[in-house]
């Protein structure tokens, strides 16, 4: 069952929060919506969870004109006066499912989420990771077709965040869920989903794979939001760019002036290609795993690149190359 967001807009207090959102989300997939705080991510999820009504537009599915997603909230929102078991079974109890069935389904879901031994505890007796598992179990017990997750990992520390990311992936595969999750951490979005929508100021600016987003953002706003990139000002003449860092052919729609997009990773290489970029002097480098963040001076301009560890030495000059013709916004 594919979900469709058609011309969805939301206006509150004369302020446009969502502007003509159009998305198509296939079933059994994870779709990430990535955007900064205040971009309208939670408003969008609230509409999909039927906690809010859009000012215009509609949210429909192939065989459901009124689909409703079950939400896992950023702060988990476990009912503080209920035990884990009571929290998890809340939806079933409210839907008047018989007690035997509730017990059976609770047992299954508590096992899947590895929280069986916590069933008698209260939320204030749980760690952040445990609380998140309970929140997931509370949603999953309802067998939702569509699961909505609002900044699900933002309250977790790094180690736990990765563990939970993998756990959510496993759950998605096991239950064949369609998951829409919103986040302002691009790493989270990239790790969890291979299709990411960029939401800026209530507008979906681009929907692409993480790799395409990083290497070919379709606008300067997306490039700036994704960060981890150098933007070099220069002039354009007949698809040729002129700047202190690079002068040569570019891919652009601009005619006079523009900004050369140089992401930290992926585009600039030390290995020779058909697209020479610039010659620069390595000023400094900082190790982080398989890569190093390298600071390079090119004709008085400083740029940052992520290069393979030990591929360059400090105080040495190197020629650098593009993987493909660079883009200018």
């Amino acid at each position: 069952m594919t979900y469709y967001l058609k011309n969805l807009s939301q206006v509150k207090s004369k302020q446009k929060i969502l502007d003509n959102i159009n998305l198509e989300i296939p079933e059994d997939s994870i779709f990430a919506i990535l955007g900064p705080s205040g971009s309208g991510k939670t408003t969008l999820l609230n509409i999909l969870a039927q906690l809010d009504q859009p000012s215009s537009g509609e949210f429909i599915a192939d065989d459901d004109n009124d689909p409703k997603g079950i939400m896992v909230f950023q702060d988990y929102r476990l009912f503080p006066h209920m035990t884990v078991f009571q929290n998890v079974t809340f939806g079933l109890r409210m839907n008047k499912v018989n007690k035997k069935e509730i017990k059976k389904r609770a047992q299954e879901i508590l096992e899947v989420t590895n929280i069986s031994e916590l069933s008698k505890r209260y939320p204030d007796e749980l760690s952040g990771g445990q609380q998140q598992r309970v929140a997931l179990a509370r949603a999953l017990i309802l067998n939702p077709k569509l699961l909505l997750m609002d900044e699900p990992f933002s309250s977790l520390d790094e180690g736990l965040r990765k563990e939970m990311l993998n756990f959510v992936k496993q759950l998605q595969q096991k239950f064949h869920l369609t998951i829409i999750f919103v986040t302002h951490y691009k790493t989270e979005a990239y790790l969890l989903s291979n299709r990411v929508g960029i939401l800026l100021d209530g507008v979906i600016k681009q929907v692409d794979s993480p790799r395409d987003l990083e290497q070919s953002p379709n606008s300067i706003e997306v490039a700036k939001f994704l960060g981890q990139s150098n933007l070099i000002s220069g002039e354009i003449d007949n698809d040729r760019f002129q700047s202190n860092v690079y002068s040569g052919p570019v891919e652009t729609e601009q005619t006079e002036q523009g900004q050369l997009y140089l992401p930290y990773s992926g585009l600039v290489k030390i290995d020779e290609t058909s697209y020479p970029a610039f010659v620069g002097k390595v000023l400094n480098k900082a190790w982080f795993g398989e890569n190093e963040q390298v600071i390079i001076e090119v004709n008085g301009e400083t740029i940052f690149l992520n290069l393979p560890t030990d591929s360059v030495e400090v105080d040495h000059n190197y020629p650098f190359y593009f993987k493909k013709i660079p883009k200018v916004f």
Partner: peptide, 25 residues
């Protein structure tokens, strides 16, 4: 309204939300 939102999203009615969530709190 955060707990009420959860309750309504999980399928509870307004009365159930008051009785099972708001009142105990």
């Amino acid at each position: 309204s955060k707990y009420q939102a959860v309750s309504l999203n999980l399928g509870a009615s307004k009365w159930q939300t008051f009785w099972h969530v708001t009142l105990p709190l």
